[in-house]
Design a protein around this nucleic acid. Sequence first.
DNA 1: TTATCAGATGCGAAAGGTTTTTATTAGTGT
DNA 2: ACACTAATAAAAACCTTTCGCATCTGATAA
Lengths: 141, 141
Amino acid sequence: MALENQELRKAGLKITLPRVKIYQILERAGEGEHFSAEDIYKMLMETGEDVGLATVYRVLTQFEAAGLVARHHFEGGHSVFELARDEHHDHVVCVKCGKVREFVDPTLTVRLDEIADELGFTVTDRTLYLYGVCRDGCEES
Amino acid sequence: MALENQELRKAGLKITLPRVKIYQILERAGEGEHFSAEDIYKMLMETGEDVGLATVYRVLTQFEAAGLVARHHFEGGHSVFELARDEHHDHVVCVKCGKVREFVDPTLTVRLDEIADELGFTVTDRTLYLYGVCRDGCEES
DNA sequence: TTATCAGATGCGAAAGGTTTTTATTAGTGT
DNA sequence: ACACTAATAAAAACCTTTCGCATCTGATAA
């Protein structure tokens, strides 16, 4: 049995075609690649799957509740999704084209721990988004 | 002439009642207090001002473009605004007692600019929240 | 295997926050 | 004050996300 089916079962979700297909798309995403519900919907259309946009949203919300994916909220009220991973990463968001990239920087974690320490805090988690514009290849979608 | 009028002029914006009123509301906000467009709209209603919600959004967007206010995007797709202060500040949040403290660290900005630069981005703004616990004097709310 | 049924889906319509459009009104420089 | 231009209110448009409901599907039992 495929890996994604085990994940779905573990989450108490029935194995259905939309769920499997959506999980596979998320699995195929490269490191740091984030998809919007619309992105996923379009990919499903392209491969001829008959899955509604509402279902994509429903499934992603269920995956999120089950801890399978992480949802990130952005400007304009739209979200992107990625398979949940262990390693902490932060995000860069282009305010022009909406592209999201992530990065990992251990020295940042060290510095932030220092700063918090000076304030008498012990950090357990963080949310960091850098907003800006990509210098090249930034096209309005 | 009032201070806010000078700010508006400097930004190349005409002095209009909605702009002055909205600016005053933002000025009255305490440090670290954030308002949504809806909040501001309601406050205007309460004082009997006849300003439409669309105008609030338009004015806030203009203020943002002029660098007068900072916009923060929150989960759920709505934004909040605050008067722009000179130096960027980040937040530390205690997940136990809910206390929020601000900190300023220029070296952090430098480092984040470097990171973004390597990714081909130019940073214009950021959102950084450190979640953790305060080591002392932390009381459950 | 087949029947059964809770749960999932697709479609269309609606919600919620934000932006644009359009006709009208109000600042501003002269 | 006058003319010119920008700004406004109100409504409608927009866009992502959610809901309602009839239909369909997958898991379990017979």
